[in-house]
């Protein structure tokens, strides 16, 4: 049994302690907003926050998340930075297929929470681990800058 604090609630999970957090979230907790894209920390689809820091849940063992606050896309809109990012994403129509966007938004929300007006270089550093196969990068960049003005 592992106790995980997910989106403000503590719950116990009867899973192997090396099970990646991604699959605990998706298949056990039923939080399917966090996506599987590569499984080996190459794409960023599975990004969630651990104590506010973006991490790749596909390579984070459940035991390593014990004792930390896990935040997923389902509730990121409850944080000021998350709400701004979501609004900016819709204002600028960033989204295409949307599959990568949970991860993009989690990376961007973490960036904005720690940096009120990110530069292009900051955006490159924070966002280059997130792949978008639909090619929404130019709009993601613009939307992060827009979010900083909201």
């Amino acid at each position: 049994m592992l106790t995980l604090q997910i989106n403000g609630h503590a719950a116990e999970f009867d899973v192997p302690d090396d099970m990646p957090l991604l699959w605990v979230l998706r298949d056990v907790a039923g939080l399917t907003g966090t996506k599987f894209g590569c499984g080996v920390a190459l794409c960023g689809c599975c990004t969630v926050h651990l104590d506010g820091q973006p991490i790749r849940s596909c390579v984070t063992a459940a035991r390593d998340a014990v004792g930390h606050k896990i935040t997923t896309i389902e509730v990121i809109g409850d944080t000021p930075a998350g709400a701004k990012i979501q609004k900016a994403w819709l204002d600028l129509e960033v989204v295409q297929c949307g599959y990568c966007q949970s991860g993009q938004i989690m990376s961007a929300a973490a960036l904005l929470a720690g940096n009120a007006s990110p530069s292009d270089g900051d955006i490159d550093d924070a966002m280059s681990g997130n792949i978008c196969r639909c090619g929404t990068y130019p709009r993601i960049r613009a939307a992060i800058k827009h979010a900083a003005t909201l």
């Binding site: 989106n7 719950a11 999970f13 009867d14 899973v15 907790a29 039923g30 939080l31 389902e74």
Partner: peptide, 19 residues
């Protein structure tokens, strides 16, 4: 098994979850 309120946003039948 503990009896906790469901975490916000959780849905679906968690087969291996005590929730």
């Amino acid at each position: 098994m503990t009896n906790l309120p469901p975490p916000a946003g959780l849905h679906g039948p968690g087969r291996r979850s005590v929730l």
